[in-house]
């Protein structure tokens, strides 16, 4: 596929993320300036940390004058759900060559969703995955910069536009269901998701639910493998 076509396909796939990342990035930029981070600092954070919730947490900790050890532990805890993302992408990123380090670095919730959803998963298209990851970060960096520079002087009333990310997750769930045609992962997700919602404080919700879902899938794997070997 010619480069332009790949870029076009990547751009189209990341559009919903753009609608979410520009305003969220701007919100981060505004917040960072309020806490006293210089514009270049906010920009640098979006370039080298690149984690939505992680950066909001970082700014809050910075404002509270937290110590470095605290910061490291809090960041590790908050982002530990990414461990499970990597587990399910080991195969997908195989043979990605020089693109692989960046693909791993740029693995946010939204990029993971796109890469495991529509964007060329079947054909292990690393060129497309790389562009999708790069564009997603570009939206995030642009949003942060705009927020840091313009502060609260946005003229467009964009309240509510962050729902684009929710809508994206819904669409990708429907697409996954359509492709997989098995209820199992969705039943597990409903149980662990609603269970975590009922039992865990908000900051542990995602990790708790995703961790529990992984454990249930592990148990399920254990329960089906002996039978497979028996019939083989």
């Amino acid at each position: 596929m010619p480069h332009r076509r790949v870029w076009q396909e990547a751009f189209g796939a990341t559009l919903p993320v753009m609608f979410g990342y520009l305003p969220l990035g701007a919100a981060f930029g505004i917040l960072a300036i309020e806490v006293g981070v210089p514009v270049w600092g906010a920009l640098l954070m979006s370039l080298v940390i690149y984690a939505g919730a992680g950066q909001f947490l970082a700014v809050a900790l910075l404002g509270a004058g937290a110590g470095l050890a605290e910061v490291a532990v809090a960041t590790l805890m908050l982002n530990s759900r990414h461990l499970f993302y990597g587990l399910s992408l080991l195969k997908r990123f195989e043979g990605a060559g020089w693109r692989k380090p960046y693909l791993i670095f740029a693995l946010t919730d939204e990029t993971y969703s796109l890469l495991t959803g529509q964007a060329g998963e079947a054909r292990q298209d690393h060129a497309l995955a790389f562009r999708v990851s790069l564009l997603n970060q570009a939206w995030w960096v642009l949003g942060s910069l705009a927020g840091a520079l313009a502060g609260a002087t946005l003229t467009f009333d964009s309240r509510g536009i962050e729902f684009a990310l929710t809508a994206l997750f819904i669409v990708l769930t429907l697409e996954q269901a359509r492709r997989l045609r098995r209820a199992l992962p969705f039943v597990i997700a409903l149980a662990t998701g609603l269970g975590a919602l009922a039992l865990l404080p908000e900051r542990h919700l995602l990790l708790g639910a995703i961790g529990a879902a992984s454990l249930v899938l592990l148990a399920h794997y254990r329960s089906v493998t002996p039978r497979r070997e028996g019939t083989a």
């Binding site: 597990i188 662990t192 919700l205 899938l217 794997y221």
Partner: peptide
């Protein structure tokens, strides 16, 4: 096991992200 997780974890995560959102 990794292939098993690679197949079933993404849809589960997606659904959890919807619930979370």
């Amino acid at each position: 096991l990794i292939l098993h997780l690679g197949r079933y974890l993404p849809p589960a995560v997606m659904m959890i992200l919807v619930i979370y959102a």
